[in-house]
Amino acid sequence: MIYEGVLTKMQTEFANPIQYYLVFENSFLNVNQLLGKELEISFQGYQCLECGKKKKIFRQGFCYDCFMGSASAGDWIMKPELSTAHLDIEDRDLEYEKKVQLQPHVVYLAVSSEVKVGVTRKTQVPTRWIDQGAEQAIPIVEVPNRYLAGITEVALKDHFVDKTHWQKMLKNEVLKTDLYDERLKVKKWLPKEVEEYFDTTKEELFELFYPVLQYPNKVASLNLDKSTVYSGKLSGIKGQYLIFEDGTVFNIRTFEGYVVKIEI
């Protein structure tokens, strides 16, 4: 069977194990069903996720022009503390920025390798944790806008990492910890503007289970710009990565906007 289309991040379903889907314009594929099977992935071209033009992808699925101009690629996406919609100040498109920034956000602790702090819109729970390959996650506070979530994350970066160690995550080198205990520690570190949103009662602990037959001892990333054709046996899916039997890993998120052909 052959599937062809523009890569976007895999859609997921919170189940045991997590269910993964590659969705193309005219078809979709339940990736879990491919475990243990040989796949060939070949690079066919580019298509910007914003303008749809066949232009080289610069970052996050956008061509250079769209990345520099699109409201959905502003600096506040990666740095929530830079959000200004709550002040009625526009970055690139105030209407869009209000829609995204002025909604409930969750600051959380998650364990993908070690304990990390992060921010997500409430509507993206638990999708955000799945995309990171977290095995456990727990909310710290729910706040009404992205700015408050951002300054909370900044305050907690002094005590927790804010990036996932992707190699450890893919090799299943995960720190064993009690996230309930870790959550209780943060109260004294919260910004004053956020203290009222912290509840000392226990939040729900999320546990996530991934469809992995075998974890690799070493990992090597597949880069479609350097290796335009790759074939291997799929041994797992975690985060937004496909894991192959030979230790090759393919980050779908990195190659959003790339047109590929997948042959099974």
Rank of each mutant, 00 (worst) to 15 (best):
R183K: 12
T200L: 11
L190G: 04
L184A: 02
D199H: 13
K188E: 15
I243K: 06
I237L: 15
P191F: 12
M169T: 11
D246G: 10
Q167P: 03
G232T: 11
L234C: 05
T200N: 12
V174W: 04
D246T: 07
L208G: 01
T177M: 02
E193P: 02
L190S: 08
P191L: 13
D246V: 10
E245A: 10
H159Q: 09
K185D: 08
E173L: 14
F209H: 05
K187D: 13
G239C: 12
I243A: 05
L242Q: 03
E193G: 01
F209W: 07
K202S: 14
K171W: 06
R183V: 08
K238V: 07
L175E: 15
Q167K: 14
G239D: 05
D225L: 14
E203T: 02
L179Q: 10
E195W: 01
D246Q: 08
T228W: 05
H159I: 03
D178Y: 04
N217Q: 15
A220N: 12
L175R: 11
E173V: 14
K226S: 13
K168N: 15
G236C: 01
W189S: 03
D246A: 11
Y215L: 06
K176I: 06
V212L: 03
R183E: 09
V194H: 05
F198P: 05
E245T: 05
P191H: 08
L184Q: 11
K185R: 09
K218R: 14
H159R: 06
K192N: 09
K192D: 14
K233L: 05
L208Y: 09
T164S: 03
Y230W: 15
L213T: 03
M169H: 06
L179C: 09
D199E: 15
L170H: 08
K192H: 13
E182M: 11
Y210R: 04
K171L: 10
F198D: 10
V229H: 02
L190N: 02
P211D: 03
L179V: 02
Y180V: 15
L213I: 05
L175M: 12
F160N: 05
T164M: 01
I243V: 13
I243N: 01
I243R: 05
K168W: 11
H165P: 01
K226W: 02
K163N: 08
F198L: 11
